[in-house]
Design a protein around this nucleic acid. Sequence first.
RNA 1: GGAGCGGAUCGGGCGAUCGCUGGCCGCGGUGACGCGGCGGGAGGAAAGUCCGGGCUCCGCAGGGCAGGGUGGUGGGUAACGCCCACCGGCCGUGAGGUCAGGGAAAGUGCAGCAGAAAGCAAACCGCCGUCGGGUUCGCCCGGCGGUAAGGGUGAAACGGUGAGGUAAGAGCUCACCAGCAGGCCGGGUGACCGGCCUGGCUCGGCAAACCCCACCCGGAGCAAGGCCAAGCAGGAAGGUGUCCGUUCGGCAACGAGCGGCUCGGGGCGGCCCGCCCCGGUACUCCUUUCGGGUAGGCUGCUGGAGGCCGCGGGCAACCGCGGUCGUAGAGAAAUGGUCGCCAGCCGUCCGGCUCCUCGCGGGCCGGGCGGAGACAGAACCCGGCUUACAGAUCCGCUCCAGCU
RNA 2: UGGGGAAUGGUGUAAUGGUAGCACGACUGGCUCUGAACCAGUUAGUCUAGGUUCGAAUCCUAGUUCCCCAG
Length: 144
Amino acid sequence: MTPVGQGLPRTSRLLRPADFARVYRRRASAASGPLVLYAAARLDGDGDARVGLSVSRRIGNAVVRNRWKRRLREAVRMIRPRLPAAVDYIVVVRGGLPPRGAEGARQVEATIVQLAERVTGRPGFADKRPASPSPRPRRRGAGR
RNA sequence: GGAGCGGAUCGGGCGAUCGCUGGCCGCGGUGACGCGGCGGGAGGAAAGUCCGGGCUCCGCAGGGCAGGGUGGUGGGUAACGCCCACCGGCCGUGAGGUCAGGGAAAGUGCAGCAGAAAGCAAACCGCCGUCGGGUUCGCCCGGCGGUAAGGGUGAAACGGUGAGGUAAGAGCUCACCAGCAGGCCGGGUGACCGGCCUGGCUCGGCAAACCCCACCCGGAGCAAGGCCAAGCAGGAAGGUGUCCGUUCGGCAACGAGCGGCUCGGGGCGGCCCGCCCCGGUACUCCUUUCGGGUAGGCUGCUGGAGGCCGCGGGCAACCGCGGUCGUAGAGAAAUGGUCGCCAGCCGUCCGGCUCCUCGCGGGCCGGGCGGAGACAGAACCCGGCUUACAGAUCCGCUCCAGCU
RNA sequence: UGGGGAAUGGUGUAAUGGUAGCACGACUGGCUCUGAACCAGUUAGUCUAGGUUCGAAUCCUAGUUCCCCAG
């Protein structure tokens, strides 16, 4: 039967562009198969793990993209207590169709947990600064 | 029984459990919010964004030109490029299907190659006449003229058959047929149909080529638009009458109001007309260009040309009246995950029945095993069109064969 | 979500409705002791499906793919 997990309220998810930009700028990622996982420590330093999803239009039509997001939300709902806390994650889909059935669901869950442990276990991950402080792109025009 | 045509409907069902979302009620909390309960939560195409409308803003939405669209007729509709009925052409034995289906005797233009000639007609071969020369007396060569019956080319060559006629021929003449133009009569709201008479004998194709004619169209789009919060330096550069009349205030300089003329800037989708706004000298208002900031929240946001049933009108599309139902509102974007049972589909195997053109053929029923479960996800809302789609059901009709 | 644009050999690009060219590339041969350069030849295309037309890359309709813009 279904293992009892917990809910996935919106407060435990990354929804705003600013949050996404912060995690991407940390440039800490790991990849396996169709998934890429980005991670960055939360600014307040405590609280649960939060997760954002990114499924681009290149993956497929709206039905395929929705299938991926539902599969990923369900996986995150099940495994969120097992993820390192006080960290924001982003799961990016690289391509392909989502694995189907209970077998596929367990596969996705295992992949996410494994990637999260790999990223957060690296030395120096706890630093708040971006790993390689690349200069922000200049917006100003060439001259006045 | 076989082959086929047209139309309509559905597009899995039930249950358990864990979640997401917004509505109502209750409790807690200053509040953001949290907890509990109840009842909701994707489609026939939600898709493509090809048309048409509603709605919102562009201060108002006027005329002409330009531009775009539509194109048999009559209806339906809020409107349409949609739908219905009818007319005409083409296809099919038929049920039916299909057509951007106005104008080529308003004008301009196009037709490669082939062919003598591609649109005012025209003579390459051929046929005929005549003149001159030659001759093996069959005829041959050359000049001039007549001729569209025959040849071959092409998508297309100025009507078809027969008779008369002629040197040879030809609508040159005649009869019938096809086609064109004009007139009259009858039917139909009309497209058009039927008939009669006359004419000249023929006057081609392409307008999804320019164009002409008739009708229609202002532009953008819910990221429209409105409100709040936060933030950015009350940013930089440029722009235009020192007009006239009059009233009031003032000693005056001058200031304010009204009217007129003209000028400048800007706006009304492009241009013109026309209209409107601002400007009378200004660091402050207006306006143009450049630059800077924001990426948060609320609203618009779901009840509408709405669905179903009945009655009436209409061939129909559709319309009217009455009753009844309550039916998604997310916001990086919910409507899902797992499991069980049933129904249906495909493949294969087994058993039974049945039809024969007897072939491990087709159909029906039952069972075992395995597999698949389509196309596709609301984003302001409707009416259409187009495209995609596993499978299932129903209705009407046609042709062929057999039996009664 | 809304709006706009494009598609021609492997690549970049031409073509008043009348045989689809050009350059680079690839392949083959020649020249050379070998290679490059050079010379000759070959390969291969109008995004797809219908329609208009005697004839369509071009005109019309529907679809596919890609690109750009917008609070």
